[in-house]
């Protein structure tokens, strides 16, 4: 068993998760890659280190809650849930195929372990807010985490929730912003403009931290691919569940992170890897078995 500060195990799981995500999408013939990759390290930290959950009892009332509001990254969540034992890894092959529990966007009516359905953007934080509020009213001690995307943050409904959560003093609610700097198509870079992706960062030039703090959130910033920053930030947010301010973790990430040819490329928002590309991915991630 690894120590609390030894993150090699988590790094290995994240590599497996990325492999499962991109190879599953290739098998299904459609799906997202860039978002699942930018979120992967945080998902692994949540499911394997931070959240109190039971894969054999997904409805356990005291479980910590997680909502992937950027639902198009579902395959990232499914891959991590499979590694954590919520579903057989084999089942990933059914992704996006008729009759599957693994819908293109997370469907709470099909897959135990989800807290709500997401996909139409901007809605998950409100549900998380309701769960956190209900937990306070019931005196339940679990923590609620919601991951939102930076492109998704353009949706107005999120700002409704951002305004209301501090009003109800929900220290038991944590939003994680996967700020990967790219959305599906977005805006072209101006001449001489350099961002970490090949298109303009949706929130370029905006002091999001300042905005969130002014709205009443406790805000921290981390490198969303460094477990030595991710885990302490999530654990600290969880530890402050009794506080009067919800936490917003700004995770600076890279879309397509983990594989050289997908990093920072907006076209990998949603794309299917060729067999040749999959071989490259496997090599980079150190995956031995190519079987998908």
């Amino acid at each position: 068993m690894s120590s609390r500060t030894d993150y090699q195990e988590l790094e290995g799981l994240a590599r497996k998760g990325r492999w499962l995500a991109i190879s599953t999408v290739a098998g299904s013939g459609a799906g997202h890659v860039g978002g699942p990759f930018s979120a992967m390290d945080i998902l692994v930290a949540l499911y394997f280190r931070v959240m109190k959950i039971r894969s054999d009892d997904p409805k356990w009332p005291e479980r910590d809650r997680f909502i992937l509001s950027k639902g198009h990254s579902s395959i990232g969540q499914y891959a991590v849930m499979a590694l954590r034992g919520f579903l057989p890894v084999e089942e990933l092959k059914t992704f996006d195929k008729g009759g599957s529990r693994l819908q293109g966007h997370p469907d709470v009516t099909r897959l135990p372990g989800l807290e709500t359905s997401t996909g139409s953007l901007g809605q998950g934080l409100s549900v998380g807010l309701g769960i956190a509020l209900g937990a306070r009213m019931r005196g339940q001690k679990f923590h609620t985490f919601v991951m939102i995307g930076d492109g998704e943050l353009q949706e107005g409904m999120i700002w409704e929730a951002l305004h209301i959560a501090p009003r109800y003093k929900l220290g038991n609610l944590t939003a994680i912003l996967d700020w990967n700097g790219l959305q599906q198509f977005g805006w072209v870079l101006a001449m001489n403009e350099t961002h970490r992706g090949d298109r303009r960062d949706p929130w370029s030039g905006t002091d999001l931290r300042g905005v969130f703090e002014k709205l009443g959130w406790h805000c921290t910033e981390i490198d969303g691919h460094d477990f030595s920053q991710i885990v302490p930030a999530l654990e600290s947010a969880k530890a402050s569940g009794d506080s009067e301010r919800p936490t917003l973790i700004i995770a600076h990430t890279i879309k397509g992170k983990g594989v050289q040819f997908t990093e920072g490329k907006h076209e990998w928002h949603s794309k299917v890897a060729t067999d040749e590309e999959l071989r490259t991915v496997a090599k980079e991630l150190g995956i031995q078995e190519m079987a998908v």
Binding site: T116, L125, V127, L129, I131, L133, E160, I164
Partner: peptide, 23 residues
């Protein structure tokens, strides 16, 4: 009685979260 302000979309989402806890 939970005042959700003039923000109907969030109001609907919050209700869904509360319903998941049996409210």
């Amino acid at each position: 009685f939970l005042q959700m302000g003039i923000a109907e979309q969030n109001c609907v989402g919050v209700a869904v979260g509360l319903a998941s806890l049996g409210f």
